[in-house]
């Protein structure tokens, strides 16, 4: 008989990722409605010291699976040990963060357990005793509520940074259970890992893009954009005018004849918003425009606009975001 909510505690380099706390808070909420427990599974090498802390965030029990072979994520090893654990414990639901790792792992585990999986959910609740997930589809143009009525466990990945984290209860500890791993057959060899140090993400893959236009006035001012980008972990883009003027390389041009991008957040600074530019970025989820011309076209497409001198706005914005992120 399935019981309990299991959460995948994602860690990297010895640090628990924030989405884990979001999952625990959500897990606790639904577990209490279902009258069940919340447990977490923590996988890696030398990670047991992290297990206790999860209690403060709501984990009643933490399964720790440690092994040298689990130091870096590999689909095979992680899927093997996690699927084994899930099979043994038969939870009602197994939740993961919708990160690259969580998404990768969830699909394998779901199939191995022959159950359903809802990915990239933005809400989770209990309705009529059933766990219901909300997820956007069609790039957010429609929303579904969905459940997995029969198959167990119910599986879902939850979009990071969406669900709230409850205040940790200081001193509350979790029962830590060490689980001996059966790594199994690992078919993939990692030859090399390229960590992004300070380099910003690829323009076309970035979740956030900070982009400048003619209003930047010169290449030296792109530093303002770069500072903002670094605070946001964003890529830097530019309109054609900047590329033409030779301020920035063609490779970062956004627009009809440049790159087509659709990040979650697109900050357009000093860009007037000609259709050729809009064609390359209008599918961005949230568009922010900073332009001193209140009549600029870009404001028609923007979700948030600031009419003002970007040389004054950008530094303050960078500082404020830094404060929020701290």
């Amino acid at each position: 008989m399935a019981k309990g909510i299991l959460v995948f505690a994602e860690q990297r380099d010895g640090k628990i990722k924030k989405v884990t706390y979001e999952l625990l808070s959500a897990g606790k909420k639904i577990a209490s409605q279902l009258g069940e427990e919340v447990s977490a599974v923590l996988v890696g090498k030398g990670v047991s010291s992290l297990a206790g802390g999860l209690g403060e965030y709501g984990a009643d029990k933490v399964y720790v699976i440690e092994n040298d072979a689990l130091e870096n994520y590999t689909t095979d090893a992680y899927a093997n040990v996690v699927a084994d654990l899930v099979k043994q414990n038969e939870p009602t639901a197994f939740l993961l963060g919708c990160s690259i790792t969580g998404r990768d792992l969830a699909a394998q585990v779901a199939q191995r357990l022959n159950t359903g999986l809802l990915t990239d959910c933005i809400n989770v609740m209990v309705e009529n005793g059933q766990i219901v997930f909300t997820r956007p589809i069609y790039a957010g143009k429609a929303i579904i509520n969905a459940a997995i009525p029969e198959a167990r466990p119910v599986m879902a990945t939850i979009r990071p940074n969406v669900l709230p984290v409850d205040e940790p209860q200081a001193g509350k500890s979790a029962e830590v259970v060490n689980v001996p791993p059966n790594i199994g057959n690992v078919r993939i060899t990692v030859k090399d890992v390229i960590r992004q140090v300070s380099a910003r993400p690829e323009l076309t893959e970035a979740d956030i893009i900070v982009s400048g236009g003619r209003g930047m006035k010169g290449p030296e001012n792109f530093k303002l954009l770069e500072d903002l980008a670094d605070v946001l972990g964003a890529a830097v883009g530019a309109s054609r005018a900047c590329v033409d003027a030779g301020w920035v390389p063609l490779s970062i041009q956004v627009g009809q004849t440049g790159k087509t991008v659709s990040p979650n957040l697109y900050i357009a600074a000093g860009i007037s918003g000609a259709i050729q530019h809009l064609a390359g970025m209008s599918s961005s989820k949230v568009i922010v425009a900073v332009n001193k011309d209140a009549e600029a076209n870009i404001f028609k497409s923007a979700d948030f606009g600031v009419v003002g001198d970007l040389f004054e706005v950008l530094p303050v914005l960078t500082q404020e975001i830094k404060k929020l992120k701290a």
């Binding site: 990297r12 990160s99 690259i100 060899t189 990692v190 030859k191 090399d192 890992v193 960590r195």
Partner: peptide, 8 residues
Amino acid sequence: IEGGSAVM
């Protein structure tokens, strides 16, 4: 991969 890329 999380935080970068890997050659596999």
